[in-house]
Amino acid sequence: MEDLTLRGKTISYFENINLAQVKSVIRAIAHMHKNVLTADPSLWRGKFLKNQTVLADVSNVLHSMIEPLIKKSKREGKN
Score class of each variant (00 low, 15 high):
Ser24Asn: 15
Ala30Glu: 09
Leu19Glu: 15
Lys9Ser: 10
Glu15Gly: 02
Lys74Gly: 04
Ser24Gly: 10
Leu43Gly: 08
Glu15Cys: 13
Ala39Trp: 03
Glu76Ser: 07
Lys34Asn: 10
Lys72Tyr: 07
Ala20Gln: 12
Ala30Phe: 05
Asp57Ser: 12
Gln21Leu: 05
Ile11Leu: 08
Ile66Trp: 01
Met1Asp: 13
Ser59Val: 03
Ile70Arg: 14
Asn51Ser: 15
His63Leu: 01
Ala20Val: 14
Ser24Ala: 15
Lys23Gln: 13
Leu6Met: 07
Asn51Lys: 10
Ile70Ser: 05
Val25Arg: 08
Thr53Glu: 07
Gln52Leu: 08
Thr5Ser: 12
Ala28Pro: 01
Glu76Pro: 00
Met1Asn: 15
Val25Gly: 04
His63Cys: 01
Lys47His: 15
Ser64Gln: 12
Gly46Ile: 00
Asn51Asp: 15
Ser59Tyr: 03
Thr10Lys: 11
Asp57Cys: 03
Thr38Arg: 08
Pro41Met: 04
Ala20Phe: 11
Val54Ser: 03
Lys47Met: 10
Val58Cys: 03
Val58Ile: 13
Ser73Asp: 08
Ile11Met: 09
His31Asp: 11
Leu43Pro: 01
Ile11Gln: 02
Leu69Val: 05
His31Pro: 00
Asn51Gly: 15
Glu2Met: 10
Val54Gly: 01
Ile66Thr: 02
Ala30Tyr: 04
Arg27Cys: 05
Gly77Ala: 05
Trp44Gly: 00
Gly8Glu: 04
Pro41Trp: 02
Ala56Asn: 08
Glu67Ala: 14
Ala30Leu: 09
Asp40Trp: 07
Asn60Asp: 11
Val54Cys: 00
Pro41Thr: 04
Leu62Met: 09
Trp44Arg: 07
His33Asp: 07
Asp40Tyr: 06
Asn60Lys: 14
Leu55Pro: 00
Met32Phe: 09
Ala56Pro: 02
Phe48Ser: 06
Gly8Lys: 06
Ala39Arg: 15
Ser24Lys: 11
Leu6Thr: 14
Ile17Ser: 07
His63Ala: 03
Glu76Asp: 15
Pro68Val: 08
Ser12Asp: 09
Ile11Tyr: 11
Lys72Ala: 13
Ser24Val: 11
Asn16Ala: 07
Thr10Asp: 06
Met1Arg: 06
Lys72Gly: 13
Arg75Ser: 08
Lys71Ile: 02
Ile70Leu: 11
Leu69Pro: 00
Leu6Cys: 06
Val61Cys: 02
Ala20Trp: 04
Ile70Val: 14
Lys78Asp: 09
Leu6His: 03
Gly77Asp: 07
Met65Gln: 13
Thr53Cys: 01
Glu2Leu: 05
Leu37His: 09
Glu2Gly: 01
Ala39Met: 12
Lys50Tyr: 06
Lys47Tyr: 09
Met1Ile: 11
Ala28Thr: 13
Gln21Met: 06
